[in-house]
Design a protein around this nucleic acid. Structure first.
Lengths: 340, 340
DNA sequence: TCGCCGTGCTGAAACGGTTCATAATGTAAC
DNA sequence: GTTACATTATGAACCGTTTCAGCACGGCGA
C-alpha cells in the first residue's frame, strides 16, 4: 500500500523562489514569453521543469476570467447519432484549443438542470444543449446571465437564440418520395408519438410527399405508432399490422433501430425484403449498410451538426443569433429497391 | 441583434449586502445551512433568488480544494463499447454527486496528453484512462503529483496502480471452446495484429481451448490477420480464405463488426450461417442480436467496467491499489448453433 | 552633466469564495 | 448578580493566479 504523497502542488511562488525571480516574471514566462529576457526565461523554465509545476486552472480562471471550456448536453451518449454530433463538436473546438465537458441528460430535465448548473459554476463560455423537453425558459435565463447557448438538434422557438437542426420534414418527404418513385401507392409509417418533434415533422414530410404525388394521405398513408423507438418497437409495429391482416408493400420506419426490428420480423414471417416489402429507415447508423439486406436510410449530417453548433458558440459575443437547418440526404440501398 | 449584458455576475458579497448579513453567513447558508437561524437563512435565500446568484466554482475550488470532478479519456466515443463504459462511469459518479469530463483521444498520444494536462489544471480528483499506447510513465508521474489514476480496459503493469480490465484470454477461450463443443475440430480466427493487446490475448485464449481439448494448435487453428477491425476487414478475411480454397467450418471474429462483414460475405457466396459455417463474434454490440442471423458473441461487462473504475477512483486516498479483472460471458445465438 | 526614454523586472492588489478565531447575545446554574 | 456555556454572526486571512503601476538601469541626445 502506497501512501500518496500529500505534498502540496508547486505554485508559481515556488517556481519564482527557485528561479530567483518574482511571481510576475514567472507569469510572464507562461503567458507572454517575449517580454522576458531569454536568460531569465531559461532559468524559470528549468525551475518549472524541476518542480513539475502545473498551473492551477481555478486560480487562473478566477483572476483572468479566461474561459476555454464549453459544455455539451445530449440526450443519450449511447445513441450513435449523438456521439457523432459530439465528435463534430470536439473537432471544431480543437481548432481553437477549446475543450468540451460532455454529459448526457437521459431525457431527464433534472439531470439537464444539474449539469447546466455545474457548467455555469465552472464558468463555461457557453453550452450546447439538446433539450430534454420543449420547456427552454431556463436556457433563456442562463443566457441572460452571460452564458452562451446553442440549441442542438432542435430549431429555436425564439429568433434571438441560435440553433442547429436538421430538416425532419424534408427527411420524411425524401423517404416517402423515394418509395412512391419505386411504384408504391400506399406507405406504411412505423412512427413514434407526435409529441416528439422529430416524429411529428417526419410525418408531415410523408404527407407532403403523398400530396405532391396527387394521393390522399387519408388513404395512402397507414401510420402505426410503435411503443418504443427501437428494434422491439419495430417488431411490435409489424406484428400489429400482420394481425390486422394488413400486409404492407412499403414501410418507412422512424429510425434505423425500428427498421431493424421490422426487417427481422418480416423475415421471420417469410416476407422478403425488398421483393415483397420495401423498407426505409432513418439515421443511417453505421451498421445500416452492413445488414444482410443493406438498409435504405435517411442520413443526417451529424458531424456538421456538431461542428456548426460549436462554431456558433465560439463566435464573438454580440454576434447575431442564427438558426441553421441542415438538409438530410437519402441513401438508397437494397432494402427498398426490388431486384431488376 | 441582442447585445449580451456584460453585467458582472453577482458575487457572494452582493448577496450579503442585499440580505444585510456578512459574507461568512452567506457561505454558511450555502454550505452548512443548519448553522444559520431559519429567519436569517430565509433572508439570504431570497437575496440569492433575487440576484440569480450562482457560485463561482473556480473561487470555490481554489480556496476549498474541494473537487467533485473527475476526468475520463477513452479511445473512441463512437465505439459502443466505450460509450457503455462511460455510462457506467457516470452512473457510479452520480451516486456521490461527482461529475465527469469525458474526452476521446482517438488513439492519439498527443491528444491524450493534452486532455490530461487540462484535467490536471482544473484540479480533477483523478482520471480514468484507456491509454493510447503501452507507454504509461506519464500516468505514473501524474499520480505522483496527487492525481488519482485508474487504467481502463487495460491491466496495470505495476502493482500499485489500479486498473479495471476484462479477461480477454478467457474471452477467446470461451468462444473457441463453444465452437469445439459444437463438434468442430478446426477453428478459423479472423484476428487483428498481435501488438494490440486484446488480439494477442484472445489468440492465447483460443490456443488454450484447443490444447485443453487435446488438439494441436498448429493444425487446428487457422489465423487470418485482417487489415482493419471492422466489417471491411471481415469481408477481406473471408475472401482471403476462399481464394486459398479454404472453406472453414467454424469462424471466430475478433469483434462483432468483423463478424458482420464475414457474415455478409459468406452469405453472398451462398454459404449458409450457421448450416455451413458457425460464426462467433466479440463485444455483443446492440445489434448483434438483431441481425437476420443473430450473432453468437462474447459479452464484456462494459457498464460494470465503468462503474468499478469510478468506484476505485472515489475511494479514500491511501487505499491500496487494486487490479480488477472481469470475466466475459458467451452469449449463444443462432449463428453458431446448427439447427437440430 | 543632465534629462528622457525604453526595457526588464518587481511586488502588491484583485478575483470570489471558504474557514476560523472572535465577538455578541441569550440561557442556565449557582 | 455572577459565571459558564451554547448559539449565531462577523470579518479578515487565505487559496494561486494575472495584471499593472512603478522602479532600476543603461543608453542617447542636447
Amino acid at each position: 500500500m502506497t501512501i500518496p504523497t500529500a505534498r502540496r502542488r508547486a505554485s508559481i511562488a515556488d517556481v519564482a523562489r527557485i528561479a530567483g525571480v518574482s511571481v510576475g516574471t514567472v507569469s510572464n514566462v507562461l503567458n507572454r514569453p517575449e517580454r522576458v529576457l531569454p536568460a531569465t526565461r531559461e532559468r524559470v523554465e528549468v525551475a518549472i521543469e524541476q518542480l513539475a509545476f502545473v498551473r492551477n486552472g481555478s486560480a487562473r480562471q478566477l483572476r483572468a476570467g479566461t474561459i476555454t471550456t464549453v459544455g455539451a448536453i445530449v440526450l443519450d451518449l449511447s445513441n450513435p447519432f449523438f456521439t457523432d454530433v459530439v465528435r463534430g463538436i470536439e473537432h471544431r473546438l480543437e481548432l481553437d484549443s477549446y475543450t468540451a465537458m460532455v454529459a448526457s441528460s437521459d431525457d431527464d430535465p433534472a439531470r439537464e438542470h444539474r449539469y447546466l448548473r455545474l457548467f455555469e459554476e465552472h464558468g463555461v463560455l457557453g453550452v450546447m444543449v439538446v433539450p430534454a423537453t420543449d420547456e427552454i425558459s431556463h436556457l433563456l435565463t442562463l443566457r441572460e446571465r452571460g452564458v452562451g447557448v446553442v440549441l442542438l438538434d432542435r430549431p429555436s422557438p425564439v429568433p434571438d437564440l441560435s440553433s442547429v437542426a436538421v430538416d425532419d420534414v424534408l427527411g420524411g418527404e425524401l423517404a416517402a418520395r423515394h418509395l412512391l418513385e419505386q411504384g408504391h401507392t400506399r406507405i406504411t409509417f412505423l412512427n413514434g408519438p407526435h409529441y416528439i418533434r422529430q416524429c411529428a415533422d417526419r410525418h408531415a414530410g410523408v404527407v407532403r410527399a403523398l400530396e405532391a404525388a396527387g394521393l390522399d394521405p387519408a388513404e395512402a398513408l397507414v401510420e402505426v405508432t410503435v411503443p418504443e423507438l427501437n428494434a422491439d418497437g419495430g417488431e411490435a409495429g409489424i406484428r400489429t399490422l400482420l394481425e390486422r391482416g394488413d400486409r404492407p408493400s412499403a414501410v418507412f420506419c422512424v429510425n434505423d433501430l425500428t427498421a431493424l426490428g421490422a426487417l427481422r420480423t418480416l423475415r421471420r414471417e417469410g416476407i422478403s425484403v425488398p421483393d415483397d416489402v420495401a423498407l426505409v429507415g432513418y439515421d443511417d447508423v453505421t451498421f445500416a449498410a452492413e445488414l444482410a439486406t443493406p438498409l435504405t436510410s435517411v442520413r443526417q449530417p451529424t458531424h456538421q451538426l456538431g461542428e456548426r453548433a460549436a462554431d456558433l458558440l465560439l463566435r464573438p459575443p454580440g454576434s447575431p443569433a442564427e438558426q441553421v437547418v441542415f438538409e438530410p440526404e437519402l441513401v438508397v440501398r437494397e432494402s427498398s429497391t426490388r431486384a431488376a
